[in-house]
């Protein structure tokens, strides 16, 4: 089958860093999402557990990521996410789509979005919705 006409100009795969900050070990969600993103054709870099915000931002820069999925189930999202955002800003990284997943109360979701997080996904979010969100979010940025 050939449908080359509508293909985007670059054939570079979308690069996503799946990041697990904090000290908790709840990596079930992060690993499922990492695998679903990879199965959908993206390049996935999973940081592994217990990463500091500094380590995560370094990975994002080194891997030239288009998007980052931060997975937090420790309740420390209001400390860790602002820190990651601040470090990205300091490093002049402003073209990365930022998503957060985990046990995040509604009130905090609004605050995170106001800080610059594009999407927040709580338990029960369909995997496909997350994949689609990242795909369309990244391609919109590239236009």
């Amino acid at each position: 089958m050939s449908s080359a006409v509508a293909e985007p100009k670059t054939d570079r795969k979308i690069r996503v860093v799946v990041a697990k900050p904090g000290l908790d070990g709840h990596d079930r969600g992060a690993k499922i999402i990492a695998r679903a993103l990879r199965d959908s054709g993206m390049e996935v870099i999973y940081t592994g557990l217990h990463q500091t915000p500094e380590q995560i931002v370094e990975t994002v820069i080194q891997e030239d990521a288009d998007a980052i999925g931060v997975s937090i189930l420790s309740g420390a999202h209001m400390t860790l996410v602002p820190k990651i955002l601040e470090l990205l800003k300091e490093e002049g990284v402003d073209d990365v789509l930022i998503t957060v997943g985990g046990t995040i109360p509604n009130k905090d979701i609004d605050d995170l979005k106001a800080m610059g997080v594009s999407g927040v996904f709580t338990p029960g979010s369909p995997t496909e919705a997350i994949v689609e969100f990242i795909r369309s979010g990244v391609s919109r940025r590239e236009l």
Binding site: G22, D24, H50, T52, S74, G75, A76, T79, L80
Partner: peptide, 10 residues
């Protein structure tokens, strides 16, 4: 330093 934001959370 690694404990910042996590003390008493979970």
């Amino acid at each position: 330093a690694r404990s910042l934001g996590e003390v008493g959370r979970e």
